[in-house]
Design a protein around this nucleic acid. Sequence first.
DNA 1: CACTTGACCTGTCCGC
DNA 2: TGCGGACAGGTCAAGT
Length: 290
Amino acid sequence: MPELPEVETIRIGLARLLPGRQVTGVTHDTVKSFPNAAADVDRFLVGAKVEQVVRRAKVLLIELSSKYSLVIHLKMTGQLVFRGEQNFGAGHPSRSLIGELPDKSTRVTLEFSGGDRLFFNDQRKFGWMKLIPTAEVPNIDFMRRLGPEPLAAEFTSQDFITRLRRRPGSNIKAVLLDQTVIAGVGNIYADESLWGAKIHPSSLVVHVSDNKLATLYKELKYVLELSIAKGGSTDKNYVDSEGKKGSYLAFARVFRREGLACPRCGTTIIKTRVAGRGTHLCPHCQRVAT
DNA sequence: CACTTGACCTGTCCGC
DNA sequence: TGCGGACAGGTCAAGT
């Protein structure tokens, strides 16, 4: 569920809440949610202080004073929700859309000095959390294979075009979703940016002009930045570090808008299947390139 | 090799 | 109202 803007929204929240706090305890349910917990938790997590919270692609990194980092991937239904004085003061005990925590989808609970807690919830159990030496994080397979950050200042339109052109025979949506090509794009922002650039998601990259790809580069950055400004997209599960929904979907042009009018031409938006994923598009604005 | 499909889980929604 | 099947925003292994 969480793509780049959702993970970035969580990061912004946690970066306000966590640095300086000391971890005093950890509980976790399955080995799967926290595969290497047993080995290192006592030495490198409990007792450590949070230094900073960083995002790379859809991965969140909580860097600790022990020189280890918690590396967290939320996959489809993961949530990281903080409960403590700081976001529940002043007689407003629950602005959160989630109820009491922990609940039945809580996989890991981090406890901080003072009793504040961070909950890693994950209904579908696809997500994971690992404790890894900070210096080694960039070298783990998943991180090493990631493509560039689309919002990085040094990531140019030409870089974008060059990387997409390496996959001429794939449909363009599959390439946008490939994390080794560009990091952080998921289903929502793939559909939204392709609509913005008037490109049909099934178009093979080889059939899409450089001009269109340059437009796609701009549209992709636009939707990612807009979504971060709106606190991300909440369809079902996504909430930020305080348990609050994001509002990007109120601004979406095609995603989850099948049956409604295209905001550009009025044609009815359809939902179909491309690259094995539910795909939303305007059949008038977005024609398959040949 | 490049590319596509199924599996991983749980919950929900839709049609019969 | 009950039940089976399809589907859900991500990623990887296995398949063509």
